[in-house]
Amino acid sequence: MKRENQMTFGNRREARFEREPARRVFAAELREARHQFKEGTEEKSPTYVLLPTGQRCNRAFVVGSMTEKMRQGEQNIFYRARVVDPTGTTFVTAGNYQPEAMQQIARVEPPAFVAVVGKPNVFEAPDGGGVYISLRAESVTVVDRETRDLWVLDAAKATLDRIDAYGTTEDSKKAAEEYRIDPALFRKTVADALAQMHL
């Protein structure tokens, strides 16, 4: 019997655009990230930063206390903000190319809990003062303490998941070569961060 009308599943549609997930990463790990790479050769190919626990990261989600913000530049206004989590400080920037995030930072009165979604960006200090990483903000929103607490648990879980998968994925093998950091170090970071929550 013919079944010509049967629906065929699978590849029924070409691959659609997949948004890059926002990785949960503590400041202590993010500041160690150095290795930046591009997947594919096209101009629009995404750029990733390789996290030391072995996962590529094109976008990050961080919730912490904005303790300070600085407005820089005359013609090209540019904001830098410090966002502190239980493990350290993440630098968040927003310039003319991120007008929405810039206006959002402008409205924040530190200290305040903020949720930041942004793209990691590795750069070298002009005076040869070393390599830094910051998050170029896509959005900065004032949130409540509970959201911050939830994020600490979320980042802890994500970091532990990455450590558990360490050595089993291509990205983590690459991380082992690039960084030579024992991931057990980050397990300690997570434990310390969680211990602070308990207080």
Binding site: L153, A156, L160, D192, L194, A195, H198
Partner: peptide, 21 residues
């Protein structure tokens, strides 16, 4: 619904991280 902070989730993660409470 807003996800709520659950102390049990924190305890489980502390165990998993091998830290001391």
């Amino acid at each position: 619904e807003r996800h709520r902070f659950d102390p049990a989730a924190l305890a489980a993660l502390i165990d998993r991280a091998g830290g001391e409470a």
